[in-house]
């Protein structure tokens, strides 16, 4: 029997994983989410901002990473708009600003914001994508207007109401970087934090999170949300439950399946080796 287990067709494992991911989607139970200190710091920092404070959100990801990062974006945007924080959106990835627009559409469709939907150039601006990777961050340290001469809609940024008095990072109270790779959190830490002393928190894909954790410990990052779990934690803290929380059940089921297969596979290996 154990020999058979070791020769199991990988497609059977795929079916188990698929079932573990799909079945929980149809369940109505929700999973308990415990908040990690790294995510708590993000929330505490946001909570410490006065109404009217300026939050820069860098959308450095594209649709493949959206399942992990989009729920974070929606949660943070909802918190910002609810608490009257001004949001400045940029993207170092071409599809980033589009992801931001989708997140804002999500916020607008929320009944909570039915009577008071976020308004462009009053509550938020989208400065769009700018090529140049880390050099864009470097440029923003000198001048936002020079680095982003036009917004996402093609309007000159110096004509935007929200850009009045915003010259560089010293005029921004908090930066949130949602990153799926390069350019992303590492570059923001290197240039915005360590060079221009900006206050930065990050939301990362799970695959990238281990690389970034040391920055939290060193105090270079004011919080880190890693992967879907980080998104669910953020949703819990801001009080808007969305896809991050919903997907956690599927995630946990799949992890259990993977753990079971690792245990069974190892057990079968050691038992057959003894023979």
């Amino acid at each position: 029997m154990f020999d058979k287990l070791l020769k199991i067709d990988r497609r059977i494992i795929f079916i188990f994983v698929a079932l573990a991911l799909i079945v929980p989607m149809f369940l109505t139970i929700t999973q308990h989410i415990s908040v990690s200190p790294e995510v708590q710091i993000i929330y505490d920092t946001l909570k410490g901002l006065q109404p009217g404070s300026k939050v820069l959100m860098a959308f450095d990801y594209d649709p493949p990473s959206a399942p992990e990062l989009q729920p974070m974006a929606v949660a943070i945007l909802k918190y910002c708009f609810k608490n009257n924080l001004k949001v400045y959106i940029i993207g170092l990835w071409p599809q980033g600003p589009m992801q931001a627009n989708m997140a804002i559409d999500n916020v607008i469709s929320d009944p909570t914001f039915k009577d008071n939907p976020p308004i462009y150039d009053k509550d938020y601006v989208n400065l769009g994508f700018m090529s140049g990777n880390e050099l864009v961050i470097q440029g923003m340290g000198s001048s936002f207007l020079h680095t982003f001469p036009r917004d996402y809609l093609g309007k000159p940024t110096h004509q935007l109401e929200m850009m009045k008095g915003v010259n560089n990072f010293s005029n921004i109270d908090f930066i949130v970087n949602l990153s799926a790779g390069y350019p992303g959190t590492v570059e923001w830490v290197l240039f915005a934090v360590d060079r221009f002393h900006a206050k930065l928190a990050a939301g990362n894909t799970a695959v990238q999170a281990p690389q970034v954790y040391p920055y939290v410990h060193a105090g270079q990052l004011s919080g880190l949300a890693g992967g879907l779990k980080g998104a669910a934690e953020l949703e819990k803290l801001v009080g808007f439950y969305g896809k991050g929380t919903k997907f956690m059940l599927s995630q946990s089921f799949a992890h259990m399946i993977v753990i079971v297969f690792i245990i069974v596979g190892n057990a079968a290996y050691f038992i057959t080796r003894k023979k």
Partner: peptide, 14 residues
């Protein structure tokens, strides 16, 4: 973390 990330992507598609 990598497994978690890949699962998340699949969850997104499902």
């Amino acid at each position: 973390y990598t497994v978690m990330s890949r699962m998340s992507l699949l969850i997104g598609r499902f």
